[in-house]
Nucleic acid binder design. Structure first.
Length: 450
DNA sequence: TTTTGAGTTGTTCGA
DNA sequence: GTCGAACAACTCAAA
């Protein structure tokens, strides 16, 4: 039996890994990661998380992982020749770019490219309506998704025989480890999950919308890198649920629903690859947008004069992560207050989010913009002040990220213009009048196509 | 076949 | 202060 290449991509783990199990069952395994030139320009936070995960994978493959730089359609066939491999194993890919890349690699290979499993509990494209067409509304999708169900996590093969002696590039230098970065590795993600599952998740329903608290799993980076598989999480939810109280069970269900959203958006992207960077629906065709100019830069840099928005945008730049509630508020601000097309905002998020996931990012933006699935009612415009008061009731989140406002106590920090000397420490004046721009957004929707 | 009601995440206004 | 109504058009599934 010849060698089997295990080409890792969005699946940087060894546990619950069907493709790795398939490779190990077929022979000796050469684990490979390719640094694709397409990664150039990836933001620093994403790159740091990736390096962390690769270093961990190197350790968990007993040092056998080979890292090569170059175009996959050249690197993978070259490795096949060097290792005299019989097959190349991968986890199935579902994004438009990933599917194109895999087609190129397959065409360049003289051995089979074998896809086993995907980064989802249910592979994109598998959940359909009775007539075989895809869902466009979440709730019916999630019902069908739940009904379809998923396999149990894949067993870690008892022993994997790794191929040695194939030359690779030096391992990318792992960044200085912080607690957050540690959660990007397989071990770290599983530890974080165990700790979250052990108690905090019981309050998830209550606390998930509070950016001032640490009430979420923060596993988005691990899910993005595939250092943990969602099926592992779903199995654990089912395992612990019977021993939890009523309220806690609702929280577990809620967490499951959030995983369903991730699967829904992957499914939508699978059926509509162009929706990654273009309106999914036609409903807003013809609407008037403004070009991204100075106000767009103010939004990117967190100096709009609206504390909740600026806190979020600064957290994004500093941490490569933003709380989901704040993602919605900042997205609403760009699309409804600045009247800029969502694609510009989605690109900025892609650049800076360590957990950037094409399907979730693009369709989350489209949901807010009103161009996507479950088209947001046109009148749903977030008020950045009210949202801050409601979800950051003590103002702690704003003060954490906007030092110029630290002299303002409590919730008053959400309206610094009302506080004596509120703007005395260099914080920006509001760049717009929210009530007026809300009316403007509604008027543009009214006039679309005209 | 047609009808009906519900659909993640909101805000404002007037009683 | 609280509360209900109103604010498109469309998708989907159940009646």
């Amino acid at each position: 039996m010849g060698a089997q290449i295990m080409w890792f991509r969005r699946d940087l783990r060894v546990r619950d890994h069907p493709a790795l199990a398939a490779a190990a069952a077929a022979g000796e395994v050469l684990p490979v990661f390719v640094i694709d030139p397409a990664f150039e320009g990836v933001g620093a936070a994403r790159a740091a998380a990736l390096r962390t995960a690769i270093a961990a994978l190197h350790a968990s493959t007993d040092g056998a992982l080979v890292v090569r730089e170059g175009r996959p359609e050249q690197v993978i066939p070259a490795l096949v020749a060097e290792a005299r491999a019989d097959a190349v194993h991968v986890s199935g890919e579902s994004t438009p770019g990933g599917r194109r890349r895999d087609s190129r690699v397959e065409a360049a290979l003289e051995v089979p490219l074998i896809a086993t499993g995907t980064p989802y509990a249910v592979s994109p494209g598998r959940v359909t309506k009775g007539d075989g067409s895809p869902f466009r509304v979440f709730t019916p999708f999630s019902r069908a998704w739940l009904e379809r169900g998923w396999r149990a996590p894949a067993e870690l093969p008892e022993r994997i025989r790794w191929v040695r002696g194939v030359e690779g590039e030096p391992l990318p230098e792992p960044p200085e480890t912080t607690a957050r970065l540690a959660w990007a590795s397989e071990e770290g993600a599983l530890e974080r999950w165990a700790a979250f599952l052990d108690g905090p998740i019981d309050d998830y329903g209550e606390q998930r919308d509070r950016p001032d608290l640490d009430g979420t799993s923060r596993l988005s980076i691990a899910l993005k890198l595939g250092t943990v598989h969602p099926r592992t999480l779903l199995a654990d939810l089912d395992r612990v649920a019977p021993r939890r109280g009523k309220a806690a069970q609702r929280s577990l269900k809620r967490f499951q629903t959030e995983l369903a959203w991730r699967e829904f958006y992957a499914d939508v992207l699978w059926h509509h690859p162009r929706s990654a960077w273009a309106d999914l629906g036609e409903q807003l065709r013809g609407i008037a947008y403004d070009e991204p100019r100075e106000p767009f830069d103010a939004w990117c840099e967190g100096r709009t004069g609206f504390p909740f928005v600026d806190a979020g945008m600064r957290q994004l730049l500093a941490e490569g992560w933003m709380h989901n509630r704040v993602r919605m508020v900042t997205a609403s601000f760009l699309t409804k207050d600045l009247h800029v097309w969502w694609v510009h905002g989605a690109r900025h998020f892609m650049q800076h989010l360590a957990d950037h996931d094409l399907a979730s990012n693009s369709h989350g933006w489209q949901w807010t913009a009103g161009t996507g699935t479950d088209a947001a009612p046109y009148f749903r415009v977030f008020n950045p002040v009210v949202q801050g008061q409601r979800y950051d009731p003590d103002g702690d989140y704003v003060r954490r990220w906007v030092p110029e406002l630290r002299h303002i106590p409590g919730a008053a920090v959400h309206e610094p213009w009302k506080w004596p000397d509120g703007l005395a420490h260099g914080y920006a004046e509001r760049i717009l009048d929210h009530a007026a721009e809300r009316h403007e957004a509604l008027a543009r929707l009214e006039a679309r196509g005209a």
